[in-house]
């Protein structure tokens, strides 16, 4: 049986309009002005794990999240999409954790599970856009790492990963176990859970593992990124004035627009 582990993070909804975006008075992070959602790409990762399970038949999917108590909502959604198990790791046990620390904590949790054949993460989070944790996890486990995967098949004892590149896509044959990041594609849009699966997800127990459950001393997990000092977090000022082309009808506006473009010497 294949064991697929999907890592999900809860973040502030990245789709909020810029006008609603505010910084926390600490000026070290965003203020909680939006609802909390699963990070972009993390549900795409779960979706391709679900598709792989449908293809191979015999697979088990564990969703894990390192986060605050509210992150249980992301895990419940994962269960309602039909992940088999979900585990929360208490982020508050690891204050100020950096990307290396996240990878070490997730690795400690994954080591407590049945051996994972494939670990899937989103290509980057929608808040800090680090793009590091999956690669660090691969380094922790010394497993092959492939990024920007949009689809997977199992071929014998290898995975075939369909990976996006700048100009198209590649099929990467990877030995198992492996670690991948997942990017969006029209074939991996997260499915909408069924009502009965929502009910089932609400009845499931989701354990919350602590630092001591994982045998970790919080101060020892930090890595070199914890030494970076955030000297400033700011909203960049955009002071472009948009000239709206007016006209009685579409034809007049189009002619006006062409004149203005010609004046800018771009046509």
């Amino acid at each position: 049986m294949l064991h697929l582990v999907v890592c999900l993070k809860q973040i502030l909804d990245p789709e909020i309009p810029p006008a609603d975006f505010k910084l926390d008075p600490s000026a070290q992070r965003a203020a909680p002005t939006a609802s909390l959602v699963a990070s972009i790409f993390d549900e795409n990762a779960l979706e391709i794990a679900l598709q792989l399970r449908e293809k191979v038949g015999d697979a088990r999917i564990t969703a894990i999240s390192l986060g605050p108590p509210s992150a249980v909502d992301v895990l419940r959604k994962a269960l309602s999409m039909r992940a088999d198990d979900a585990i929360l790791i208490r982020e508050e046990d690891f204050p100020g954790i950096d990307a290396h620390g996240c990878a070490r904590v997730l690795a400690a949790a994954i080591r407590k599970l049945p051996p994972a054949d494939l670990i899937l993460c989103g290509r980057e989070t929608g808040d800090w856009h680090g793009g590091l944790v999956a690669a660090f996890l691969a380094a922790e486990f010394d497993r092959p790492y492939t990024n920007f995967v949009a689809g997977i098949t199992k071929e014998g004892d290898h995975f075939h990963l369909r990976r996006q590149t700048e100009d198209g896509w590649e099929i990467v044959r990877s030995a198992a176990p492996a670690v991948i990041t997942v990017t969006n594609d029209d074939h991996n849009l997260p499915r909408i859970p069924k009502v009965k699966d929502n009910m089932m997800a609400f009845r499931k127990q989701i354990p919350a593992w602590t630092a001591s459950d994982l045998g970790l001393v919080p101060a020892s997990v930090a890595g070199p990124n914890s030494k970076l000092e955030q000297s400033r977090l700011y909203v960049p000022v955009v002071d472009r004035k948009c000239e709206i082309i007016t006209g009685d009808n579409a034809e007049a506006k189009a002619r006006q627009l062409v004149e203005r473009l010609a004046a800018l010497q771009v046509i």
């Binding site: 990245p14 800090w128 000297s231 700011y234 960049p236």
Partner: peptide
């Protein structure tokens, strides 16, 4: 960061 809504300045 935050989908381009903010910039983070880091010192190494």
């Amino acid at each position: 960061v935050y989908g381009g809504k903010a910039n983070s300045e880091l010192i190494a």
